[in-house]
Write a protein that binds this DNA or RNA. Structure first.
Length: 572
DNA sequence: CTCTTACCTG
DNA sequence: CAGGTAAGAG
């Protein structure tokens, strides 16, 4: 591919020539009116807060692998972290129980102090946050201006803007580092705390009053909750601000012949100079575009459902501007988010990191990508990760951080699921099928309280059950015919037990892990269904094209209530 | 006419 | 399992 080597400097003039066609039409309009990620961060804020609140006791679970994945060396001098570390680094082995407790209490108090007085010690969390807020206001102001004749915006202002945004992001990253440090420590606290309680229990001597450390712990948790929530949402806000600013700053037309071949990259940051810091150079690999198709698919992000397949099947020539076809009306945040959630993080023109250079990437120290994204997270599908689905190359780096945040959120059992249906939902639906073959949409709503039901989600769920039934009846017919072939004459000889092959087939389909005790009722209904098929086929009713409908009518009356347990969002 | 659903396909 | 389609209900 014709990718510019990452070494190229990203000075302003150059940046302006990068991928003009991409820059234009694709995102300008929709994102110009996009409110800086407000919806995502809002949702996040809400969701995270809820989750945190409901997970009071397990919130701070953070396996030590996580903590060890954090490399303070790779980060620019994080005094706070170091200070904390030195303060907390002594080992417990030699301490007697009471010494141990005392020491721990001290540590907890230390942390609380550190957080309350916040970062004057280390530097700047507080003032940074203030700065972020200021920036936010300033940005709003600038965005208003830029929405008008954009090209008239003085370049220096843009540069400054970008530079400051850059700084903000770095600040947020530092904050996250710090936060993570704190959480890691708290986890250690909790961990040894529980160990200790185990010991204490065996010795039949719970610590009286606990030195008020329980209270301290609680306070700490609260503080951490707030901090985490705030930090994450601020980071996200920042990223989105940056995104929209960047897009606004890029307004050159798409008709340049350049866009077809040579320069298929877009500037990582806004088109301005951000000084050739190492980070700038290193992060460039994130912004490669592989071809026109990607852009076409990008459309799917913001145009409603039908456009996805359309766009994929009928890529537009680059010099045309297909992207605008859906933009007659301003898009709502919710539409975009909905699309993200629906099609998931990798549904669009996501660019793979194809960096050949093995230069370290500072922002990844936070992400702890290798550990988190491979092992522990596995199948986790957090809606938050869908931020990645934006797949706007120039925010890829930030996406990495967002993603890592999301990952760690799942890691911490926050399990942010947003509104889309996850594999767990599917699994749950399958188990529910053992009770109900024809669930009403109301029933579904009741039993999937963690799902935000809109038309798409509802029909998807209904579609699932429709598919379940399809498989179910296919099996019924198959085994009924088999019984007839096997010479069974009487309907009464047709039965379904847990040993039946029919049951095994069904169980394999709906309960693959076989970790669910299928209710007897399901067997009874299955038997009725099988007998219905048997009779109908025996009587040659199957010559009627709609012969199955009578059977469906019988079966749909045999639904039973789904146990209340299924209503729990965390079922499974 | 819109919305739902059964059926078919990949 | 999801997408597409066509028939049917309201």
């Amino acid at each position: 591919m014709n990718l510019s080597p990452p070494e190229h400097s990203m000075d302003g003039s150059k940046a302006e020539h990068l991928l003009p066609c991409f820059r234009r039409s694709a995102f300008d309009e929709p994102l110009a009116s996009y409110h800086s990620g407000s919806i995502i961060s809002h949702l996040l804020r809400k969701t995270i807060h809820n989750k945190l609140t409901s997970l009071d006791n397990s919130l701070l679970y953070l396996p030590s692998a996580n903590a060890s994945g954090f490399d303070p060396e790779s980060n620019s001098a994080d005094d706070f972290a170091r200070e904390e570390q030195s303060c907390l680094s002594f080992k417990d082995e030699d301490l007697s129980v009471s010494e141990h407790l005392q020491a721990k209490r001290t540590r907890v108090e230390n942390i609380i102090r550190g957080m309350a007085a916040s970062p004057n010690a280390d530097g700047e969390a507080e003032s940074e946050c203030e700065a972020v807020r200021c920036r936010r206001d300033l940005l709003k102001e600038n965005k208003r201006k830029q929405r008008l004749p954009q090209h008239q915006e003085p370049k220096t202002s843009k540069d400054e803007e970008c530079h400051k945004l850059k700084e903000q992001l770095q600040s947020m990253q530092r904050l996250l580092h710090q936060l993570q440090e704190k959480i890691s420590h708290v986890h250690d606290q909790n961990y040894s705390e529980s160990e200790e309680r185990e010991d204490a229990r065996s010795e039949h001597s719970m610590e009286p009053g606990g030195f008020g450390s329980d209270r301290a712990m609680k306070n700490l948790k609260e503080t951490l909750k707030c901090e985490l929530t705030r930090t994450m949402s601020e980071s996200i806000d920042t990223v989105f601000k940056k995104l929209s600013t960047t897009l606004l700053n890029q307004s050159s037309p798409c008709h340049s012949p350049d866009c077809s071949e040579t320069e298929k990259r877009i500037p990582e940051d806004s088109p301005s100079d951000l000084s050739d810091s190492e980070e700038n150079v290193n992060s460039r690999h994130c912004f490669e575009i592989h071809g026109p198709e990607h852009q076409t698919e990008a459309l799917s992000l913001v145009v409603r459902k039908p456009s996805l397949s359309q766009a994929v099947k009928r890529p537009f020539p680059l010099h045309q501007t297909p992207f605008q076809m859906g933009y007659s009306a301003p898009l709502h945040d919710s539409q975009i988010l909905e699309h993200l959630l629906k099609y998931g993080p990798h549904s669009t023109f996501c660019l793979e990191r194809s960096s050949p250079d093995s230069v370290e990437r500072p922002w990844e120290s936070l992400a702890m990508r290798s550990k988190l994204s491979s092992g522990h997270l596995g199948q986790h599908q957090t809606g938050l990760v869908s931020v990645d689905a934006l797949c706007l190359p120039h925010i890829k780096m930030e996406c990495g951080d967002l993603q890592s945040m999301a990952e760690r959120s799942s890691f911490m059992s926050l399990n942010i699921s947003f509104e889309r249906l996850t594999p767990n939902h599917l699994k749950k639906a399958k188990l529910m099928f053992f009770y109900t073959r024809y669930p009403s949409s109301n029933l579904l709503k009741n039993f999937f309280p963690d799902v935000k039901f809109d038309r798409c989600i509802t029909s998807q769920l209904i579609k699932w059950f429709s598919n379940f039934r399809e498989f179910y009846y296919i099996q019924m017919e198959k085994f009924a015919r088999q019984a007839i072939i096997d010479g069974v004459n009487d309907v009464k000889d047709v039965s379904v037990t847990r040993e039946s092959e029919l049951f095994r087939a069904l169980n394999m389909h709906y309960n693959k892990a076989n970790d669910f005790q299928v209710p007897d009722r399901f067997l009874e209904v299955a038997e009725v269904a099988l007998q219905e098929f048997f009779s109908a086929i025996s009587l040659s009713k199957d010559s009627d094209p709609s012969w199955k409908k009578a059977i469906y009518k019988v079966i749909c009356k045999l639904d039973s209530d789904v146990p209340e347990d299924f209503k729990s969002p965390s079922y499974l």
